[in-house]
Computed example of a mutant assay.
Amino acid sequence: MFIHQYTSAGRSWGLLLALFTALTLSFSACKKQEDNPPTLSTISEIINTGSKFTLLKAALVRAGLDGTLSQPGTYTVFAPTDDAFKLFGYADAAAINAAPVDVLKAVLQYHVLGTQLMSSAIPVAVNTAQQTLLANAVLYTSKVTSTSSTSATSTTLSVNGAHVLQADGQASNGVIYAIDRVLLPPIFGNVAATIQSIPILLPTASFKLLQSAVTKAGVGSILIGTGPITIFAPTDAAFTAVGYDSATIAKAPAGLLTNLLSYHVLNSRTYTPLITNGSSLTTLQGGTITAGISTTALTVTGRGNANTPSNITGPDITATNGVVHIIDRLLVP
């Protein structure tokens, strides 16, 4: 009897010892995992291995900035996808390698903040200025919430004229956002200087008649003031389509041109992600224009355009005091 009790007790102690050993080993394994958490990739590594960032990778190498995003730090990168680069006119790496290095470097620096900015830290507001790595150049984040007919609340996030496709990609040296457009920095200065310089970026666009009309009307101060403003800038082709050439503009009364031009200006910085289909936009002239969406572009229509919309063919060109949208038809008050 005594031997049986001893044997049973021995077995119990043996089981307890085995259980204690297993728990100890399990705790040690967990402790090692805590001491050695999974290593996050750098922003550069995420871009280099991401299938949708091949053109961004080529651009960073071309500009000599690929090493910067490999270094320790707290960066925020708004990363244009390959589709964004193609929309901007860079079809492949060869096109990127043909771009001037200084221009490409400025454009890429404009996509990077020197501090980590999580989406939860972005305020619910439009056009919150964020300083970029490009000297004296800020970009603008906008977070907008809306409620559907079923009372469901949704939040949209944009930066300048780009929609955020994916937010808060964690990296060892910061955070990365995927965006659907390349952001143009305000490298040309104010709205007037930007309109004058757009043909450098888009050689097919010309605004000589718009500039002549601004001079004749004497409203240039609006375009160089502190702003912010938004201008829907008609091309030369848009002016000539309704009978305005340089001679006609020279003979036109200044008041008529002032009324016409101020109808193309909003007294705010309005990027296209902030414009909704069917919205009414109040102009500096006092009248309204109506926004719409066609199969190919965002449109704006003046009250006197007989329901014939103007396409925004070059959206969201940032200036220091506002934003420029290129349009293909004159807006008639």
Rank of each mutant, 00 (worst) to 15 (best):
G14W: 06
G14C: 08
A18M: 11
F20H: 03
F20I: 09
A22T: 13
S26E: 06
S26C: 10
S28A: 15
A29L: 12
C30H: 13
Q33S: 14
D35N: 15
D35M: 10
P38S: 09
T42Q: 09
S44I: 00
I46Q: 10
I47G: 07
N48E: 12
T49K: 15
G50D: 11
S51F: 02
S51M: 04
F53G: 06
F53M: 13
K57N: 14
A59Y: 04
R62W: 07
A63K: 05
G64H: 12
G67P: 03
S70Y: 06
V77W: 09
F78Q: 10
F78L: 11
P80S: 11
P80W: 02
T81I: 03
D82E: 02
A84N: 08
A91M: 10
D92C: 03
A93V: 02
A94I: 07
A95P: 03
D102K: 04
D102G: 01
V103T: 14
L104R: 02
K105P: 01
V107P: 05
L108I: 08
Y110D: 04
Y110I: 01
H111R: 12
L113P: 04
T115V: 14
Q116M: 12
S119C: 01
S120C: 00
A121K: 13
I122E: 05
I122T: 11
I122F: 08
P123F: 08
V124R: 15
V126Q: 15
N127K: 07
Q130I: 00
Q130R: 13
A135D: 14
V138K: 15
T141L: 14
S142E: 04
K143F: 00
K143L: 11
S146M: 02
S149L: 08
T153L: 11
V164H: 10
V175G: 09
I176D: 01
P185G: 06
P185L: 06
P186F: 04
P186D: 12
F188D: 01
G189C: 06
I195M: 06
I195A: 11
I198A: 07
L201H: 03
A205S: 12
S206I: 00
S206M: 02
K208I: 00
K216L: 00
A217C: 10
A217K: 13
G220D: 09
G220T: 05
L223G: 07
I224H: 10
G227R: 09
G227I: 06
I229E: 02
T230Q: 01
I231N: 08
I231S: 04
T235C: 07
T235V: 05
A237F: 00
F239P: 04
A241R: 06
Y244E: 02
Y244K: 01
D245P: 10
D245W: 05
S246E: 13
T248F: 07
I249G: 07
A250E: 07
K251F: 04
A252Q: 12
N259K: 14
L260A: 13
S280G: 01
L281P: 13
T282C: 00
I289C: 05
A291H: 08
I293W: 04
S294L: 00
S294F: 03
A297P: 00
V300C: 04
G302T: 07
R303N: 15
A306P: 00
T308S: 14
P309Q: 06
N311T: 15
I312C: 05
G314I: 13
D316I: 03
N321Y: 07
H325R: 13
H325Y: 10
I327R: 12
I327L: 04
V332S: 12
V332P: 01
P333I: 05
P333L: 11
